[in-house]
């Protein structure tokens, strides 16, 4: 099994690592029993992802895909961000080893969960 150079770069120096106290939406997927947990925090302004942070427990692919997803989502409208999927993330990283495509490529799901969380909160506010 070999990781692409891009995966290793994102793994060695992941972008947008961290948490947010005042996040507008938070999404979490995976579970520790499987060895992968991803949490994504978003700040939304004018229907766009203004800031994004992530925390990930997992292997090289899990961390690299998290980093890539946050890069891809930053500045996008929520609808645009919802179109980011596992395949786009893998392609942007110049591919992932086949065994990693499913178990460690959950970052797009975490992003969608964060957006849904934001939308749910907005809907609740609107009453």
């Amino acid at each position: 099994m070999q990781y692409s150079k891009k995966v290793l770069e994102h793994f060695a120096e992941p972008h947008n690592v961290g948490t947010m106290d005042d996040a507008d939406g938070v999404g979490e997927v995976g579970n520790a029993v499987c060895g992968d947990v991803m949490r994504i925090f978003i700040k939304v302004k004018d229907d766009r992802i203004d800031d994004i942070k992530f925390q990930t427990l997992g292997c090289g692919a899990a961390i690299a895909t998290s980093s890539m997803v946050t890069d891809l989502a930053k500045g996008k409208t929520l609808d645009e961000a919802m179109t980011i999927n596992r395949d786009n993330v893998a392609t942007q990283l110049d591919g992932l080893p086949p065994v990693k495509m499913h178990c460690s490529n959950l970052a797009a799901d975490a992003l969608h969960a964060a957006i849904e969380d934001y939308r749910k909160k907005q809907a609740a506010k609107a009453g």
């Binding site: 992941p14 690592v17 948490t19 979490e28 947990v37 427990l57 961390i63």
Partner: peptide, 11 residues
């Protein structure tokens, strides 16, 4: 980076 290791201690 880990969300499971005492997540509230660090930012």
């Amino acid at each position: 980076m880990s969300p499971t290791y005492k997540p509230d201690c660090r930012k």
